[in-house]
Write a protein that binds this DNA or RNA. Structure first.
Length: 497
RNA sequence: GCCCCCAUCGUCUAGCGGCCCAGGACGUGGCCCUCUCAAGGCCAAAACACGAGUUCGAACCUCGUUGGGGGCACCA
């Protein structure tokens, strides 16, 4: 059994400096699932302490993405909660207070080294192939004297004092114990010259104050994990359960997803950004299903999951720490599965904007009839207009060459179409019941294969060589328009002969 | 360069010492169904990175090598 049958408090803590991508969404999803299945709390915290990196609109996009995926947060911006504020930019003083506590206890110290000095120090270390690390100059300073320099207004930062000797054992839920020598850990800066905290302090303080029980984050934090544990232990706080998720690799499996790689993907109609996925015709159900499976599995064969399934079946015990490459073709497949899992009405609503966007005037009555016959033929919603746009068009413009049946001449084809016209116009209406058998019989009479005959009609009526089932399509288009299009096809063939 | 993490089909993964000459899924190839395209069904090719060790027995445990990844900021 999962150890988390008690209600958890988990947080998704993105910095609003970039867009919400699949990796972030997956972290948020796991947070959400854990919270929902234990009756716990899912918190959204905006990590925007660094105002210099503020990106307008990023927070909004982030929230939109989460909402689109259906990952509603219980505490955070817009919804409040009793552990706020939930934006780090509004918590500056809190962090300063805690940093000063560490100073008082001798667990942190003031540092007056200038950025220039640090840069040249690093350069030298790099040249001598030494580990790159603060050299500890200000660590030796007398605390009293340092305090006086601070009081006098000398620019300074606050650094955490890592013990010189020994090692620290930290525990990641997926990897077990990790032992790190203290001498390899840097005396990281906690508070900058401008008084703002850095992530390392801010996140630990917030997690503690917000009573976070499980920290789920990317494995890029693994290298500063020992520092974080040191900070928490310096305060004497209880540690959360740490779960470091693997990162997402590019589809090739070689290297992490980069900006450049994303641009390449966009050309193929794929994107790692949640807000793009919506426009590309992906349904949130499929996105959730896919990212859930990147690093988590239920058993050796079950792969289709709805959000409710996931809430019920997710378990951190079945998480996999190995990095994973995104497989977009599988993404398409899952999107198809979830599209087929939708009710007709639901699918109508989702597909409509894509028809509108493609410039079609959508008749809702027609759409209701069209949707069932395209449901199993589209992998993304975006494919709907190209597949079925002709249903909403007044006229259709076939390629004359395609009007000629397989192994037939233009004259043969025109004759066949004429016969079809006579047949169909004699019917009270055109649908599978009334037209299927007569049409097949006609093909026989003309010594044609059904496929040959149907092919010609298909091109004349839909304008395309590939379409939903012919007779069902004609039933939707209606007798009048069908006959009109067939006449037009006969004309086109006549002009060719 | 230093620190840390990871390692099963092309990709996502199951496997936690004998059930595995390794199971599922996507993709690929073939067949069936079929008015085109799909969907669906069936079949096939396709992997335990390498080397030592532990053990009666290793994909599973240990060590090393190799490969991949992350980090080394007054970013998060």
């Amino acid at each position: 059994m999962t150890p988390s049958t008690k209600p958890v408090r988990v947080r998704f803590a993105p910095s609003p400096t970039g867009r919400l991508h699949l990796g972030g969404a997956r972290t948020a999803l796991y947070d959400y699932l854990l919270a929902r299945q234990t009756g716990g709390t899912f918190i959204l915290r905006i990590e925007d302490i660094d105002l210099k990196r503020y990106v307008p609109g990023a927070e909004e996009e982030l929230k939109q993405g989460l909402r689109w995926l259906g990952l509603e947060w219980d505490e955070g911006p817009d919804v409040g909660g009793s552990f706020g504020p939930y934006r780090q930019s509004e918590r500056k003083e809190i962090y300063l207070d805690y940093a000063r506590q560490l100073i008082d206890q001798g667990k942190a110290y003031y540092c007056f080294c200038t950025p220039q000095r640090l840069a040249s120090m690093r350069e030298q270390q790099q040249r001598s192939k030494l580990p790159i690390k603060y050299d500890g100059t200000c660590r030796q300073l007398d605390p009293g004297k340092a305090a006086k320099r601070v009081a006098a207004g000398e620019p300074h930062v606050i650094r955490f004092k890592i013990p010189e000797e020994g090692s620290i054992t930290i525990h990641d839920y997926l990897r077990g114990d990790i032992v790190v020598e203290n001498r390899t850990i840097d005396d990281y800066i906690l508070i900058r010259t401008d008084g703002f905290a850095l992530y390392h302090l801010a996140a630990m303080v917030d997690d503690h104050l917000m009573k976070i029980s499980h920290v789920i984050r990317g494995s890029e934090w693994l290298s500063t994990f020992p520092l974080h544990a040191h900070i928490i232990r310096a305060f004497g706080w209880e540690e959360p359960i740490w779960i470091h998720l693997s990162i997402f690799l590019k589809p090739s499996g070689k290297g992490k997803m980069s900006k450049r790689e994303s641009a390449e993907l966009m050309k193929d109609g794929y994107s790692i950004y949640i807000n793009d996925l919506q426009g590309l015709g992906y349904v949130p159900e499929a996105v959730l299903n896919c990212i859930a499976l990147m690093g988590w599995s239920y058993d050796d064969h079950t792969e289709f999951f709805t959000k409710e399934d996931l809430i019920q079946k997710f378990s951190i015990d079945r998480l996999n720490p190995a990095p994973a490459a995104i497989n977009f073709t599988k993404f398409d497949h899952f999107n198809g599965l979830h599209i087929r899992n939708l009710s007709i009405e639901d699918l109508c609503n989702r597909v409509k904007p894509f028809f509108l966007n493609a410039g079609y005037k959508v008749d809702d009555q027609v759409l209701m009839q069209v949707t069932p016959i395209i449901q199993q033929r589209i992998a993304t919603l975006e494919e709907a207009p190209t597949m079925a746009g002709f249903f909403f068009e007044e006229h259709v413009y076939p390629n004359p060459q395609e009007l000629i049946g397989a192994k037939m001449t233009a004259v043969d084809s025109a004759n066949a179409l004429r016969a079809v016209y006579d047949l169909l116009s004699s019917l009270p209406r055109i649908d599978t019941e009334t037209a299927e058998i007569p049409m097949r019989n006609l093909a026989d009479q003309l010594h044609l294969k059904a496929g040959q005959l149907f092919g010609i009609i298909r091109v004349a009526v839909t304008g395309k060589t590939v379409s939903p089932p012919l007779i069902e399509s004609m039933a939707i288009i209606g007798k009048e328009k069908v006959l009109e299009r067939i006449l037009n096809g006969i004309d086109m063939l006549g002009n060719m002969a």
